[in-house]
């Protein structure tokens, strides 16, 4: 059953008076409970696509259904409610430096009508899930990149959303930490059945976590299907390029004995 359904999504920006088409009719179908990968080079429109899904960015045409809700038709108030059901994780973490880890995780509960007396329990439970139980009183400024992203993930999950959008969540992390974060996302997906849209320019991340994926190139999805299929038989230039880069990378890793 599909959980996220995007049809003919179009978006253009006006740059110096000229229209710049960034999304040129995106069609995407993500099943409930899967981790779906979207790969593309820098500037392909990945972040714009992600931001259109929770309407951080307006779109020009098309439709977006999330769990049967027509996102583009929501009024302001309903949109705020709906955003609370869509978690988002960012490359730069975007944590609140003024809040401790505990209060970062508690933020989504604080601003919604979540019962005040249950906040603590939920925050502790979420912190435990991401492995941060011993860092609750720390400020983000004193955490490592991996720990920061765990806070970001906890903050995105504390509302128990049904969809998690991960926009380059591991791109700022070293390979070892990347694996840990991907393992965490996989574990969360397995435990809670949350649907994850994993946007990245790292093929490893997708290969490690996803069964299905799409290749985004200059605002168009030029290829989609099973990860293995696209790997072994890439039909697009981007797909091929990624597969080749990946293979070279594999070889380097193997020869250096630093397998990823």
């Amino acid at each position: 059953m599909s959980y996220l359904e995007i049809k003919n999504l179009q978006k253009k920006f006006i740059v110096h008076g000229e229209p710049l088409e960034v999304l040129k009719g995106i069609d995407l179908d993500v099943n409930q409970g899967e981790i779906y990968g979207i790969i593309g080079f820098s500037g392909a429109g990945k972040s714009t696509l992600a931001r259109c899904i929770n309407r951080l960015e307006s779109s020009d045409a098309g439709s977006i259904m999330v769990g049967g809700v027509d996102i583009l038709s929501l009024d302001k108030k309903a949109l705020l409610q709906e955003r609370r059901k869509i978690g988002m994780v960012f490359q730069n973490f975007n944590l609140f430096d003024s809040r401790t880890v505990y209060r970062n995780i508690a933020y989504p509960l604080e601003i919604s009508d979540f019962p005040k007396d249950q906040i603590k329990e939920r925050v502790l439970e979420t912190a435990k899930l991401v492995g941060l139980s011993d860092k609750l009183d720390a400020y983000p400024g004193g955490l490592s990149g991996g720990q920061k992203q765990r806070v970001g993930i906890a903050r995105a999950l504390v509302n128990k959303p049904e969809l998690l959008i991960s926009d380059e969540a591991t791109s700022a992390l070293d390979p070892q930490t990347t694996i840990q974060i991907l393992d965490l996302l996989k574990e969360i997906n397995r435990k809670s059945g949350i649907t994850i849209l994993m946007i990245t320019h790292e093929l490893d991340a997708i290969r490690y976590s996803c069964n299905r994926m799409a290749v985004l190139e200059e605002g168009t999805i030029i290829e989609q299907g099973s990860v293995a299929g696209i790997f072994n038989n890439p039909k697009s230039r981007t797909g091929a390029l990624f597969a080749r880069v990946f293979e070279e990378f594999q070889n380097i890793s193997l020869t250096e004995g630093a397998g990823i």
């Binding site: 951080l56 705020l80 955003r83 988002m88 730069n92 975007n94 944590l95 903050r155 509302n159």
Partner: peptide, 21 residues
């Protein structure tokens, strides 16, 4: 940072919450 406001929005904050919190 724009990203922090973006994050606050993605969580479903109202403008008032974004300013005060």
């Amino acid at each position: 940072g724009k990203g922090k406001i973006e994050a606050a929005k993605s969580i479903g904050s109202t403008n008032f919450q974004i300013i005060t919190k």
